[in-house]
Structures are given as C-alpha cells and as structure tokens.
Design a protein around this nucleic acid. Structure first.
Length: 584
DNA sequence: GCCGTTTTCGGCCCGACTGTTTTCAGTCG
C-alpha cells in the first residue's frame, strides 16, 4: 500500500462508511428499488458502524469483509471502495438520477419514499423549502393518495423539525420514564407497566420511550395516558396503541397488551430491530411465528407471558436487554457463553472524583463521606492539574497540600480509604502536566485529554502511547474525549492504545457522566477482548454526581463487561497491588 | 443484495394506525 493510500484509509471512519451506505439505501428506496435490497444496505451500515476495528484499516490489510454477517461479495467491494476512497460510484450515479436533497425529506415523520417520489414527480419538490412552499400554496392535497390532513401534517412536521432535538441524554429520559411509570401504575386496573426500547437496552441517548402496559379489562389506561400532565401533543391513538409528545419533545409510544402477551411484547418492543429479526427467524426455523402477542405454532399460543418463556421456545437462555443488538450475543447464548454482566453492586469504589480544590462543588470530606454512604470502601480524589486553568487546576504546591489533607482525613475514617490521585492533563506532545516527583507521591495517576482534540490520528495515538509510557501513569480517563451531541471523539487507533495499555499494565476508564459515557460500548468490548481492565467512574463534580456510576455500569454491560473486567470491582488490597504494578 | 441438511432461485419479520381509500397503501416501530 502506498503512503497516500494509507493516509486516505485513515481518514474514512466506520461511521462515515456507514453514513454513505445509509445514504445509498435512502436513494434506492426513493428510487423504488427492491425493499430487501434496501435492507441489505441498511444492515451493512449497522454492521460497519458496530465494527470494533477500523474498517479502512481492515480493507487496506486485504481482509475479506464478505465474511461479516449479511455482507456478500458485492457489499464487501462497495464498503472497501467507500473506506478507501470516501465515496462510491454507485452513490454518485444514484444522486445523478434523483436529487440528493430528497433523502433529507425521509427524516420528516409521515413521509416515506413513495410519497416523496410522488411529490417530486408531480410537483418537482426536492428540498424541505420546496415542500413547505408546496404545502402552503395548497398544491399537495389534490394529488392522488394525498389529502388535506397529509398537507397539514407535512407543514406541522417541517415546523416541528426546526427546534427539535433528535435524541435525549439518559437522565432526561430517566426523569420522564420514572414519573410516567409511577403515573401509569396508579391507574386502576394496571398490572404491569415497563419501559422497553432503546431505553431498556441502555443506549447512551434515547430517541423515544416505548412503554408496555398490561391492564384488567375496562381499565381507563389509554384515556388516562393521553391525558397525562406532561403531554404536549397527541400524535395518534387507537385501542391498543397511542403516541404522545411530552413537553421537552420526548415521544412516548404506549402499547397495551394482555397479560398472556406481556413477555412477548417486552421482547418485541425492547428490540433491537436487528436482534428481533434474528430471533423471529430462529422461531420460523422451528415452525413458530413470533410477534408482540406471543409465540405461535399455527393458531396456538405456546409462550408469551414472560420473556423467559419466549427465549425458551427458540432454545435460548435469557439474554439481558443491554446485549440485544445482534452483535454476536445470539451465537454466544447458543454456545452457553453469555457474559455474566457487571452490576452496580459489584463496584467497591470510585476512581475519579473532583472537589472544591478545582471545579468540584463539594469539599474533600463531603465527597468522601458521600462515597462511603453509597457503600464504597474507597474513593480516589482526582482533581485537575495546572494546565486546566478554567478549572483552577492544581500546581505542585496545591497538590501537596491536598495530599496532606487526605492523609489527615484517612487517619479519621474507619473502613474507608481516600486514595490520592490526580486527573493530569496529557499535553500535546504526550508529556504529563506535573513533575515526576509529585506524581510519584500519589496512589494513582489518571491521565486525560483536555486540549488539541483535532490532532491527526497518528499524532493523537502517539500522544496517548507516550503518556502511558510514564512510569506513574495508571488510568486513561474518558479516552475519546467526546461530548455527546457536542464534540466528536478524537481520532486515535484504539487497538494500539489498548495493546500499549496492556503491555504497560495501565487501565482505561469508562466515564459515567451522561454527556460523556466514554468509552463507547464498542470500545468497552474492545478493552475486554484486549484484556485491559476498565475503571467505571463517576467523574463526579458534586455529591449527586457520584451516582453517575450507574450510567457507566449500563454502558459497561452493553460492552459485555463482567465483574472480573472491572478495575474498581476489586477490593482495596487487590486494587493497590494492580496500581503498584503501574507505579513501579 | 444476501443466503441455503427442505432451496444456487425464490424467498426475505410482523402488526397497528392513519388517511385515503370502499378494501388498502404507506408509514412506523
């Protein structure tokens, strides 16, 4: 491979390749292509997006992508073409046939490929602006298959789109989910009420809430649901299904099913889509039909009241919701090799927290006591280092003062230990932001990127490797430095980072702040597979944020992590031994 | 476009709701 090809291959990320494949699928759909062909492209996009390794690097290394599930010769070649050149001839040809802007119209609720095609052919609509103008001038409602309501709905959804936020962070969704479930459970006749969907699978952001409810005959649950106080707008309502938009923009879909269908409905609405399709296919092979009402052999329902009963029918053990992504969990389940996922109660301590010494809002003593009250046996104080001036980062003198303060506090505390740490900036060249002799006095050194996020892949990777070469380095904090919906992850070769961490006896962090959740699920699984222990931390800046660890645990479960994979699931003695090895 | 101890051709997961339809297509999840 030439140096040029190498440089190009490093530029096209898996996410970009996936986006190009989705774009092809959109264009094909508007073109009226075979729906199963469209699905093949969407499936390929998902597979590439979830790939634990850099797709461009795999292509450059001559690996055969056709071995991936759902990807054959044709798609493998297209993926390689996109990964190595940034685009595909097929996509360019398709955009030549129909205006590329049409695909953005697919994102408008209520408009699918057929209607978009019709609007384009009859009225020449290609952009959202064209569409709004056509609707306003009343040219849409006379088209065959369209009507006055469709025209109104188009206008309304264009309007709503303007200030709409596509997805929500977990705490926001959690707040609504908890309150709604309490409300639903208090309605007469309601037996079960649970949130399914991506929320239950523990995704880092949530697009809507899928709620499954069972209730006695005659329960007013549907009327009460659409009358819920936080409802801003009713979208649709039937006898078993309704959709509302809550204030703040979160959509809630409610499904009412019989008690005998509860487990099947939970399975069905928990998804993911790809996982559900795979399971239904397994059912088919056994002569079973699986839907939200149960598992059926002919007309007879053979399972459905509980999720376990549905799993049993297709010969699977129970698969935790966080794993249901069709990323190998079904094969693992069949082989009896499902991970025993880490739980919050497995955590013995927290290895990343801040105090008023820098940008935290609670004092050293307050944070320590709050952590102990959570049941922890240790807590590492890791305030910022001097370069992070906005956070009043610690210089050597102030850090030494904090070390003394921690020693004094530890002398008082019983059955709990405050570990002396720092969240030290990794400088642009990979050096650490504090002198070696000061770092050597700490129990652990957590290194983090807070600047120069835009470095090219090679430089960024070298920067992290060099930081880990420092004899005091313990844990790489929030490795990608991303902020959900705000800042993209840095471009690094994470395989090499993990390989180096393992060789150096270092660890990687899964930061539980809802806006970070960094590592991603895919990176967490890579760490597990590489044999690098993960620190699930709160990165707390206040007492309540010590609870962030629960978001981290959810993400860790999505990454297949078990208790043995988690650094801070170790008792203090074992933790100290592991840290000493790195401080060596 | 993918895939195969029923198939290398002919299948491909399944149902609710809406709006435009007098029996159903399109959209959504």
């Amino acid at each position: 491979m030439s140096a040029n090809a190498a440089a190009r291959s490093a530029r096209v990320s898996g996410a970009e390749v996936a986006a190009a494949l989705e774009n092809i699928a959109d264009l094909l759909e508007i073109d009226g292509a075979n729906p199963f062909r469209v699905r093949a492209y969407r499936n390929a996009a998902r597979v590439v997006r979830d790939l634990p390794r850099d797709v461009a690097a795999m292509c450059a290394a001559g690996e055969d992508l056709a071995e991936l599930p759902g990807i054959g010769r044709d798609l493998a070649d297209k993926i390689a073409e996109i990964a190595l050149t940034g685009d595909s001839a097929m996509r360019r040809e398709l955009t030549g046939q129909s205006p590329p802007a049409l695909t953005t119209l697919l994102r408008l609720p209520g408009l699918g490929p057929k209607k978009i095609r019709a609007l384009h052919d009859a009225l020449g609509v290609t952009t959202t602006e064209d569409l709004a103008a056509a609707a306003k001038s009343g040219r849409i409602h006379d088209l065959p298959g369209f009507g006055a309501k469709t025209e109104q709905r188009i206008l309304a959804s264009i309007e709503a789109r303007r200030d709409e936020q596509a997805r929500f962070l977990r705490p926001f969704a959690e707040l609504h989910a908890d309150a709604l479930l309490r409300y639903l459970q208090a309605i007469p006749g309601v037996v079960h009420a649970a949130v399914a969907g991506s929320y239950r699978r523990g995704l880092e952001t949530v697009g809507d809430l899928d709620v499954v409810v069972t209730a006695a005959e005659g329960s007013p649950v549907m009327e009460r649901f659409v009358a819920y106080g936080a409802v801003e707008r009713l979208d649709s309502q039937g006898s078993t299904r309704a959709t509302v938009i809550l204030r703040g923009g979160l959509q809630v879909d409610l499904r009412l099913v019989d008690e005998a269908s509860y487990g099947a409905a939970l399975c069905y609405f928990t998804g993911s889509k790809a996982y559900s399709i795979a399971v239904r296919k397994m059912g088919q092979e056994r002569g079973l039909r699986i839907n939200e009402y149960g598992v059926f052999r002919g007309e007879e329902r053979v399972a459905g009241a509980t999720e376990e009963s549905v799993f049993r029918c297709v010969g699977l053990p129970y698969i935790p919701p966080e794993l249901r992504e069709d990323r190998g969990e079904i094969a693992a389940a069949l082989a009896g090799r499902l991970p025993l996922l880490v739980e919050r109660r497995d955590l013995r301590g927290d290895l990343h927290a801040h105090t008023t010494a820098t940008d935290g809002r609670a004092t050293l003593r307050e944070v320590a006591e709050a952590a102990r009250a959570l049941g922890h046996t240790y807590l590492a104080i890791t305030d910022h280092s001097r370069r992070l001036t906005v956070a009043r980062g610690l210089d050597p003198d102030r850090l030494l003062e904090q070390i003394d303060a921690i020693d004094r506090l530890n002398a008082e505390l019983r059955g709990f230990v405050v570990l002396k740490g720092i969240e030290v900036d990794i400088l642009e060249d990979g050096r650490l932001d504090l002198p070696d002799d000061v770092l050597a006095r700490l129990d652990l050194v957590v290194g983090a990127l807070h600047s120069a996020f835009g470095l090219a892949r090679e430089a960024q990777t070298t920067r992290l490797l060099r930081a880990m070469d420092h004899r005091c380095f313990s844990i790489l904090a929030h490795p990608s430095a991303r902020l959900l919906q705000a800042r993209s992850p840095v471009d690094v070769d994470f395989d090499r980072v993990l390989e180096h961490a393992r060789a150096r006896g270092c660890f990687v962090e899964l930061d539980g702040q809802p806006v970070r959740l960094d590592m991603s699920d895919v990176h967490a699984k890579m760490a597990r597979d590489a044999g690098v222990l993960v620190s699930i931390s709160s990165d707390a800046h206040s007492l309540s944020e010590l609870g962030n660890q629960r978001y981290g645990v959810t993400q860790a479960r999505r990454g297949w992590l078990e208790r043995k994979d988690v650094l801070n699931a170790r008792p203090l003695g074992a933790l100290r031994a592991l840290l000493r090895k790195t401080m060596g």
